[in-house]
Structures are given as C-alpha cells and as structure tokens.
Deep mutational scan, measured.
Amino acid sequence: RTVITEEFKVPDKMVGFIIGRGGEQISRIQAESGCKIQIASESSGIPERPCVLTGTPESIEQAKRLLGQIVDRCRN
C-alpha cells in the first residue's frame, strides 16, 4: 500500500473548529479516515493554514472530504 503525503490548506480562523475541544474533532477525523493530519502551528499571518496529510490516497481523500465538511459547516 502506497503511503503519500499531501499538503492541504484550511482557513486559519477555522483551525479551532477543526481541532475541536481537547483535539477530539481532529482525532475523530484521523480515526475515521485513517489519515494522519498535522496542522501547522503558525499561519504566518496568511489566511490559510497548511496541513500535512499522510496516508493512502484513499485515506487522504476521505480526510479532505471530512475537513471540507467542517469548513462548510462553519462558514454557514
């Protein structure tokens, strides 16, 4: 099985929602997708915060879908 790493950007102001209380939301996304997610600790003042996704191509797609759902929910 091929493990790859891909960068994905999330809106900086939504990082708190993505991580969740005590990290529970990000842990759930990682468990559900099987993908490791590392969010940069600093956005360096830019509106997007880079995340590094590591896993199989399928797990990365699943993680991006779950992250996208959270971002959409927070935008509305």
Score class of each variant (00 low, 15 high):
70 I>C: 13
74 C>K: 12
7 E>H: 14
5 T>F: 04
43 S>P: 15
76 N>L: 12
63 A>D: 00
12 D>E: 10
54 T>H: 13
19 I>R: 11
73 R>G: 15
6 E>A: 09
13 K>W: 05
65 R>A: 12
58 E>N: 07
42 E>A: 11
24 E>N: 15
73 R>P: 14
9 K>S: 15
71 V>S: 06
68 G>M: 14
36 K>Q: 09
2 T>A: 10
14 M>Q: 03
50 P>V: 12
10 V>Y: 02
73 R>K: 12
25 Q>E: 13
32 E>T: 10
14 M>T: 05
41 S>V: 08
9 K>N: 06
75 R>Q: 12
59 S>R: 05
23 G>L: 04
23 G>R: 10
72 D>P: 05
27 S>I: 04
52 V>D: 04
64 K>A: 02
36 K>S: 12
42 E>H: 14
3 V>P: 06
69 Q>I: 15
69 Q>K: 11
19 I>D: 09
46 I>Q: 14
36 K>M: 09
63 A>G: 09
55 G>N: 00
73 R>Y: 05
5 T>P: 02
15 V>M: 09
43 S>F: 07
46 I>D: 10
6 E>K: 13
76 N>V: 12
10 V>M: 06
47 P>C: 12
57 P>G: 06
12 D>P: 10
32 E>V: 09
9 K>R: 08
47 P>G: 10
35 C>G: 01
30 Q>S: 10
28 R>M: 07
13 K>I: 03
60 I>N: 04
45 G>K: 07
23 G>Y: 04
48 E>W: 10
74 C>I: 10
37 I>L: 05
40 A>K: 13
55 G>V: 00
61 E>P: 01
6 E>G: 04
31 A>L: 09
4 I>P: 02
11 P>E: 06
48 E>M: 11
17 F>T: 08
42 E>P: 12
18 I>M: 08
22 G>P: 03
30 Q>L: 02
32 E>P: 00
48 E>H: 06
38 Q>F: 07
66 L>S: 09
58 E>D: 10
37 I>P: 01
38 Q>V: 14
76 N>S: 11
52 V>T: 11
74 C>P: 10
58 E>R: 08
21 R>W: 04
70 I>S: 10
66 L>W: 04
34 G>W: 01
70 I>K: 05
42 E>W: 09
30 Q>I: 05
28 R>H: 06
18 I>A: 03
57 P>Y: 05
55 G>I: 00
60 I>P: 00
34 G>K: 12
5 T>A: 09
74 C>H: 15
17 F>G: 10
25 Q>L: 05
18 I>L: 08
6 E>D: 08
48 E>P: 03
48 E>G: 07
27 S>C: 05
62 Q>P: 01
72 D>T: 07
47 P>D: 11
44 S>T: 13
28 R>V: 03
18 I>K: 03
72 D>L: 08
70 I>L: 12
34 G>D: 09
60 I>G: 00
71 V>M: 13
6 E>L: 03
74 C>V: 12
58 E>S: 10
68 G>N: 11
64 K>N: 01
52 V>G: 03
33 S>R: 00
45 G>W: 05
25 Q>Y: 04
18 I>Q: 03
46 I>H: 15
13 K>P: 09
24 E>Y: 15
44 S>N: 10
19 I>K: 10
19 I>A: 08
59 S>F: 00
69 Q>W: 03
30 Q>R: 10
11 P>M: 03
44 S>R: 11
21 R>Q: 13
49 R>N: 05
72 D>G: 12
60 I>T: 03
30 Q>P: 01
39 I>R: 01
37 I>Y: 00
46 I>A: 15
75 R>S: 13
66 L>H: 05
10 V>R: 00
46 I>E: 15
19 I>Y: 05
58 E>K: 15
43 S>E: 10
31 A>V: 10
35 C>M: 00
40 A>H: 12
5 T>D: 03
32 E>R: 11
44 S>W: 06
65 R>G: 10
43 S>Y: 08
70 I>F: 11
38 Q>Y: 04
36 K>N: 08
11 P>H: 03
68 G>V: 13
13 K>N: 14
6 E>Y: 05
16 G>Y: 05
3 V>L: 14
17 F>I: 10
6 E>R: 07
71 V>N: 09
8 F>P: 01
51 C>G: 03
42 E>C: 06
6 E>N: 03
12 D>W: 03
14 M>W: 09
61 E>I: 07
75 R>N: 06
66 L>C: 06
32 E>D: 14
52 V>F: 06
69 Q>M: 12
46 I>P: 15
43 S>A: 09
1 R>I: 13
38 Q>H: 10
20 G>R: 04
52 V>N: 05
3 V>D: 06
55 G>D: 00
24 E>T: 14
36 K>W: 04
45 G>N: 13
45 G>P: 09
23 G>I: 02
60 I>R: 03
31 A>E: 15
28 R>Y: 04
71 V>K: 05
43 S>V: 10
45 G>I: 05
5 T>G: 02
62 Q>A: 13
27 S>A: 12
39 I>V: 12
56 T>M: 04
64 K>Q: 04
50 P>R: 10
35 C>N: 01
46 I>S: 13
44 S>G: 13
26 I>K: 03
16 G>N: 10
68 G>S: 09
1 R>W: 04
54 T>N: 07
24 E>A: 14
63 A>L: 01
69 Q>A: 14
72 D>Q: 08
57 P>R: 13
18 I>D: 05
6 E>P: 00
38 Q>M: 07
36 K>D: 14
67 L>D: 00
39 I>H: 02
46 I>C: 15
59 S>L: 00
74 C>T: 14
6 E>F: 04
57 P>I: 05
33 S>A: 05
34 G>H: 05
10 V>H: 02
72 D>S: 12
59 S>N: 13
24 E>W: 15
43 S>W: 05
49 R>E: 04
30 Q>Y: 02
48 E>Y: 10
44 S>Q: 14
28 R>Q: 13
66 L>R: 10
16 G>D: 14
26 I>L: 13
66 L>I: 10
73 R>E: 15
70 I>Y: 15
44 S>P: 10
1 R>A: 08
7 E>L: 11
60 I>W: 00
30 Q>D: 01
34 G>N: 11
23 G>W: 04
24 E>M: 13
53 L>C: 04
56 T>P: 07
52 V>P: 00
72 D>F: 06
41 S>G: 13
26 I>P: 01
8 F>Y: 13
30 Q>C: 08
7 E>W: 07
21 R>S: 14
34 G>M: 06
20 G>E: 06
51 C>L: 09
33 S>F: 01
3 V>R: 08
32 E>F: 05
4 I>T: 11
54 T>V: 11
69 Q>R: 14
8 F>E: 02
54 T>L: 05
15 V>C: 06
39 I>K: 01
20 G>M: 02
68 G>I: 07
41 S>H: 07
67 L>G: 00
36 K>I: 06
38 Q>K: 13
36 K>G: 06
40 A>F: 15
58 E>L: 04
65 R>N: 15
73 R>L: 07
49 R>T: 11
22 G>I: 08
23 G>S: 08
7 E>G: 08
38 Q>N: 08
46 I>F: 13
45 G>V: 08
25 Q>N: 11
55 G>H: 00
56 T>R: 06
44 S>A: 09
54 T>P: 00
3 V>W: 07
13 K>M: 03
15 V>I: 06
41 S>Q: 14
46 I>R: 11
69 Q>N: 10
16 G>P: 12
44 S>C: 09
22 G>S: 08
49 R>I: 05
19 I>G: 07
47 P>W: 08
11 P>N: 04
29 I>F: 03
40 A>D: 14
31 A>S: 12
57 P>V: 10
25 Q>W: 03
63 A>N: 00
60 I>A: 01
50 P>E: 13
2 T>Q: 14
74 C>N: 14
37 I>H: 00
44 S>I: 09
40 A>G: 13
22 G>H: 07
67 L>C: 02
54 T>Y: 07
6 E>C: 13
33 S>Y: 02
14 M>N: 07
68 G>K: 12
38 Q>P: 00
17 F>N: 05
19 I>T: 11
37 I>S: 01
75 R>A: 15
6 E>T: 10
38 Q>S: 10
